[in-house]
Computed example of a mutant assay.
Amino acid sequence: MPSLPRRRNDAAPARYGQVGVMAAEPEPLASVKANPAISITDDSAAIVLSPTEGATGDGLVFIPGAKVDPWAYAAKLSGIVESGTTVVITKPWLNLAFFDLRSLGAFTSLAPDVDTWAVGGHSLGGVRACQLTQDAEALILFASYCANDLSASGLPVLSLAGELDGLSTPEKIADARPLLPADADMVEIAGAAHSSFGDYGLQPGDGTPTISDADMTETLTSEIDHFFQTQVAD
């Protein structure tokens, strides 16, 4: 067996984790950073988006998709923050959720005023979120599905899929449907592709979205707000 190369310094893994990362589009991100209704804390573990007033006590720990800049989700999630939900966007190790072994508490501790937590994520981040539900009150899947069986968990679940998603296709989500509780809320967003859930450009193999970014944000906000109000107990 060949010997492994010696690590030169501690920055090497960080540099490797940035290879191939899909960057956040600058204009949507700038709009969030300039929004007076949203307070932003950039922690080494996560980005915390908090409502400057009118907080509901609800929170969402959101896990990014593989090799997607966590900041790329800030604009699409800004609507629920304006509605009063605190959002913690994690910064996965090496930008791959499966390598991040931290517990949900490592992220919920960044927003101690939140009483009720949902966990969720996009694509591979959603698969990881399914593994952290034991410490959450609800699960929200963004163009994703579970690999572990939660069918008997009694957990409130919202699954948001894209009609034109070429990666987490509607067929793949349907195939994994038996792993979710029978009363899971399954929503397919017309005109949405895989990349519609963030702002990082198009992905190879994905469909071409026909829904605008503004309409996608509005739809996500409406569906998630309704889910918290009707399905997630305080």
Results as ranks from 00 to 15, higher is better:
residue 9 N to A: 10
residue 180 L to P: 03
residue 51 P to L: 02
residue 61 V to E: 12
residue 12 A to L: 15
residue 69 D to N: 07
residue 89 I to P: 02
residue 84 G to Q: 05
residue 90 T to M: 04
residue 176 A to D: 02
residue 2 P to A: 09
residue 145 Y to F: 15
residue 87 V to S: 01
residue 52 T to L: 02
residue 185 D to G: 02
residue 73 Y to C: 14
residue 199 D to R: 15
residue 151 S to Q: 06
residue 192 A to I: 08
residue 64 P to S: 00
residue 120 G to P: 01
residue 43 D to A: 13
residue 30 A to C: 11
residue 53 E to R: 13
residue 216 M to G: 11
residue 203 Q to H: 11
residue 87 V to W: 02
residue 219 T to K: 14
residue 148 N to C: 13
residue 108 T to L: 04
residue 215 D to H: 07
residue 21 V to H: 04
residue 72 A to C: 09
residue 180 L to W: 03
residue 207 G to V: 01
residue 230 T to Q: 14
residue 8 R to V: 15
residue 23 A to K: 14
residue 229 Q to N: 13
residue 195 S to I: 02
residue 142 F to A: 05
residue 16 Y to S: 11
residue 207 G to Q: 08
residue 217 T to W: 03
residue 200 Y to N: 01
residue 168 S to H: 04
residue 100 D to N: 12
residue 65 G to C: 01
residue 222 S to G: 08
residue 233 A to M: 10
residue 121 G to N: 14
residue 113 D to L: 05
residue 86 T to F: 04
residue 191 G to I: 09
residue 15 R to T: 07
residue 119 V to H: 02
residue 91 K to A: 06
residue 27 E to A: 15
residue 155 L to C: 09
residue 188 E to D: 11
residue 118 A to V: 10
residue 196 S to N: 01
residue 75 A to K: 06
residue 8 R to F: 14
residue 130 C to Y: 05
residue 57 G to T: 11
residue 211 I to V: 15
residue 157 V to H: 05
residue 220 L to T: 00
residue 224 I to A: 02
residue 111 A to I: 08
residue 57 G to D: 03
residue 32 V to P: 07
residue 46 A to L: 02
residue 58 D to T: 09
residue 124 L to Q: 15
residue 225 D to M: 09
residue 234 D to S: 14
residue 108 T to R: 08
residue 157 V to I: 08
residue 169 T to N: 05
residue 232 V to F: 04
residue 157 V to G: 01
residue 5 P to T: 05
residue 214 A to D: 07
residue 229 Q to V: 03
residue 102 R to D: 04
residue 115 D to P: 04
residue 155 L to F: 09
residue 90 T to R: 01
residue 69 D to R: 08
